[in-house]
Nucleic acid binder design. Structure first.
Length: 287
DNA sequence: ATGTCAGCACCCTGCTGA
């Protein structure tokens, strides 16, 4: 079974990329984030195309911002939208949806950005992550949390730690909140498969960041042992970030063996291996 | 050099969010 996750940055704008990508990569389960579309409009826009490709669809969207979805041709049961007892900003936002697909509890999440450390939005992010941990912890043992976590787990997950000094996505409290979630027993299956490699999922549209491979790894697939033990491959589909009209995020793709074996073997912690000399590259600044 | 998108309100440029 192939599970994929992609922050599409507007599913309406990404239609010309999304449908060919589905045909090319043939994922069985797709977690989407930043659909930026109300549920009715999503169905109107994509329902027929997805049905023709054999996907059932669960959506949780808003008219303008946020929005998550799960597409599945491996079953789509017990759909839950939102995070129980989760915070809003100030109202609940469409940032999480879960369903059971092929015996696995699949969560598609779009974690709040955080904007500026110690801001209201940053505190919202941390509270939201704690609520997510509670929901995942209370759920089935076979689980995968996919999506835009808006946290780079370690300094090896950004092109230059110094470029991000003092910014959201890399602060210790955010990484601690992610570690709390992973403490449920969730493996970062892409990092497990690419220890020490330069692996990013997001590159700012500005300043030729993708061309220079100056990115971050903030889109993750976090799997419990029964799922992580079945991972045959886990990788970033960098090709989907190229060409005309891409999202600023690339998809994460995880292939699972059909037969569980429960043993993921030795796991090597990722050494920090930046190929940009620290302090030599800068982030684009907002106008 | 600053470098981009997307959505929206308001009117076609400028704001917010990322």
């Amino acid at each position: 079974m192939r599970i994929a996750s992609w922050n599409v940055n507007s599913v309406k704008q990404r239609m010309p990329r999304l449908l060919p990508w589905l045909d090319q990569r043939q994922p069985d389960v797709v977690c989407l984030q930043e659909t930026k579309l109300a549920d009715g409009a999503f169905t109107e826009l994509l329902g027929e195309s997805l049905d023709a490709r054999g996907y059932e669809v669960a959506v949780y969207g808003e008219a303008r911002w946020n929005g998550v979805a799960i597409l599945s041709r491996a079953g789509l049961d017990d759909v839950v939208t939102g995070i129980a007892n989760g915070p809003g900003f100030p109202h609940p936002e469409a940032r999480a949806i879960a369903a059971t697909c092929g015996g696995i509890r699949v969560h598609s999440v779009y974690v709040p950005n955080g904007r500026i450390p110690d801001s209201d939005h940053y505190r919202y992010k941390l509270t939201w992550l704690a609520a997510l941990r509670d929901v995942v912890g209370a759920g089935p043992e076979a689980v995968i949390v996919c999506g835009d976590l808006n946290i780079a787990p370690t300094d090896a997950d950004v092109f230059d730690p110094l470029a991000y000094a003092g910014q959201t996505h890399v602060t210790p409290p955010e990484r601690a909140a992610l570690a709390e979630l992973q403490a449920l027993g969730l493996r970062d299956v892409v990092r497990d498969r690419w220890p020490g490699e330069r692996v990013f999922t997001y590159w700012d549209y500005r300043a030729g960041m993708f061309h220079k491979d100056l990115g971050m790894r903030i889109d993750l697939a976090l799997a419990s042992a029964p799922v992580a033990g079945r991972v045959r491959a886990a990788w970033i589909d960098r090709h989907a970030r190229k060409g005309t009209g891409p999202s600023d995020h690339a998809p994460v793709i995880v292939d699972l063996d059909e037969a569980p074996d429960g043993d993921i073997g030795p796991v090597v912690p990722p050494p920090s291996a930046p190929s940009v000399r620290p302090g030599t590259a800068k982030l684009p600044q907002s106008p």
